[in-house]
Design a protein around this nucleic acid. Structure first.
Lengths: 342, 342
DNA sequence: TAAAAATGCTAAAACGATTAAACTAAAGAA
DNA sequence: TTCTTTAGTTTAATCGTTTTAGCATTTTTA
């Protein structure tokens, strides 16, 4: 905190009026409270001269508002979440709201601790990427009537606002494209998890395979969140040996590490195997590959803007029962990696 | 802010004592203020039962401390800064300190506004990646005795703590490696800017070219921060036509976009031109290239940890005159892109 | 010309915590 | 027995704002 700041009382003394009047004049309450225009001008100019900066601790204490929101993500150093954070930050800054950010690393303990810390700091609301096994924490918030918006994932049986992707449609788009290109042995690589968005992507894959009449070709391979590259080194060759013609990945990370492995073992995309990745947020990574990579694109900015707008309303109205689910739509970016060569 | 929170007064009433005693008991002041062990136990258990969360606005108002620091970066969606932010966050969380993050986009106006907002929120100190033409803003902070640590870049004639890379050494390493490999026409691509770290990288290039006796081969090409890819599309072919044998880039972004262009125009690395990039933070992008890319590696985590540790001391001692410059060391990661083929 | 309304301002309480100072009761010293 | 310590607790001020209720004036209305 800065050394000896100007307070409202200092201004009051300098001008020779009460602190109340200064407060009225500095806030736009001067209409409501009938302060003379001349006085408003005087007070504001003195405040400016004395470089007055309101003490927000005092403000918060009085008003119960902090104009601060807590944003809890999986990992801020992951591009997808960083982009979302950036979006939220921009929206918030526009609205004069400050953002506190924390990363959970998908760890329920860290998640709970972050929630406590932010509650403690008195945030006005939360934007949260919830992690596995943390439904109770979010439930507690909802029950305490704390404004909350979940993004990227949600808990089905919780009455809470959310902004998510239509994940089933996302993988469905991928399957259909590959099917249309003539691929049949289309296989899916994903994480071992119960997180809703990842699960939905799997469901989407399975369902659309069935719709395409490829029920017998369905193959879902799941790996752990740790040592992805290592896991891929054994999984990918094994799948190719098994006759896989096309690969769909449920996340960006999985796709990238697989591409690395494919290069390592000298397999060509899409000649040896077609690929559709998830998430264009790291497009530039794909740009460097010898072939351009098709991928399911999420409207990243919208996650941020929508979440912020829903949260703002929640905070403003104070009616946390009035929750709302926003579902965003994926787009398939078709490039070379999913083309069938004869 | 959460609906009707338990206050210290609620606890006091529940236990039937004064609020002062509750405060003593909850803080470890019970030694200093001689509260009976039994009472401490009782108060703490009631506080726990009532799910007491101290109101930090009140705490801050009283103490003038917020246990919050402001972190101002160039752009949180840039991997390099996101990694640093992540590091700072981890350190801070360990120490029970909350972080507020903002991005300047290298825009002095945004920078100044962020500083004002954070000051306003009463942060205890700043970690800042300063942008061009903002020396006066940082100076004002320093003069107001606000704890500040600059990272990545600094202002030479400001008495302020900083954590920076030895940038001259960084490019020097690159030049020497290329020279040792037998390259002579080693050229440097950088931004048009006065930001200290970028300028130092140029200086390092020029100086070590001279030391290698390659004074006549020195060539520095500068481009604007906007439309990098477009700029590269015209610059790179032009340089190759001019006989460039090896390229050194002053940043990651420049390197990546150039690699994209080189692929587009069908030039092979390192056969047609050798490349040394800057910053390994997006290594995975390089992993996908047909050839692995050599680069100057910055110790990213150290930027975060060192900056936080310096800032902590600054805040604790309150002696902002006791500033300190930490200089970190780059490492050259040699891979295929800088190898001379015969 | 008195009553009513509008205008411009102030006093003081409140928000929730911390803390210096004071107070009480019991224990120890003289 | 009286005085001094010590332990355990309370009182009340304080941090910087906001805001309700109310006090003088002046202006309008009837």
């Amino acid at each position: 905190m800065v050394a000896k700041r100007t307070t409202i009382r200092d201004i009051a003394e300098a001008v020779g009026v009460s602190t109340a009047l200064v407060s009225f004049a500095l806030n736009d309450d001067n209409k409501k409270y009938r302060v003379s225009d001349e006085m408003v001008r005087k007070i504001r100019s003195v405040a400016h001269e004395m470089n007055y900066q309101p003490n927000s601790a005092a403000k918060s204490l009085r008003s119960g508002k902090t104009d601060t929101i807590g944003v809890i993500l999986s990992d801020i150093s992951n591009r997808f979440f960083a982009d979302i954070a950036r979006c939220i930050e921009d929206e918030a800054s526009e609205a004069g709201i400050t953002v506190m950010i924390g990363s959970t690393d998908e760890n329920p303990k860290k998640f709970e601790r972050l929630v406590d810390v932010f509650i403690n700091k008195g945030v006005d609301g939360f934007i949260i990427v919830p992690c596995e096994k943390s439904e109770h924490v979010v439930r507690r918030l909802v029950e305490a009537k704390v404004p909350v918006v979940l993004i990227d994932r949600t808990y089905e049986d919780l009455d809470v606002s959310s902004v998510t992707l239509n994940n089933r449609k996302a993988t469905s788009l991928a399957v259909n494209e590959l099917y249309a290109q003539g691929f049949r042995k289309i296989h899916f690589v994903t994480y071992h998890t119960t997180i809703s968005n990842i699960v939905d992507r799997e469901t989407g894959y399975v369902e659309s395979m069935k719709k395409c009449g490829l029920e017998d070709e369905i193959s879902v391979r799941k790996i752990k969140y740790e040592n992805i590259l290592e896991n891929m080194r054994s999984l990918i060759p094994q799948m190719l040996d098994g006759g896989t013609e096309a690969l769909i990945f449920s996340t960006n990370r999985l796709a990238i590490d697989s591409l690395v492995v494919l290069r390592e073992i000298g397999k060509k995309v899409p000649d040896d195997v077609a690929v559709i990745a998830f998430d264009g947020s790291e497009t530039f990574a794909f740009d460097l590959y010898y072939t351009t990579v098709s991928y399911v694109k999420q409207p990243i900015e919208k996650f941020g803007t929508e979440a912020f707008s829903v949260l703002s309303r929640l905070i403003k109205t104070g009616d946390t029962r009035d929750y709302k689910s926003v579902v965003l739509h994926p787009e398939l970016i078709v490039q070379e990696s999913s083309r069938k060569r004869k």
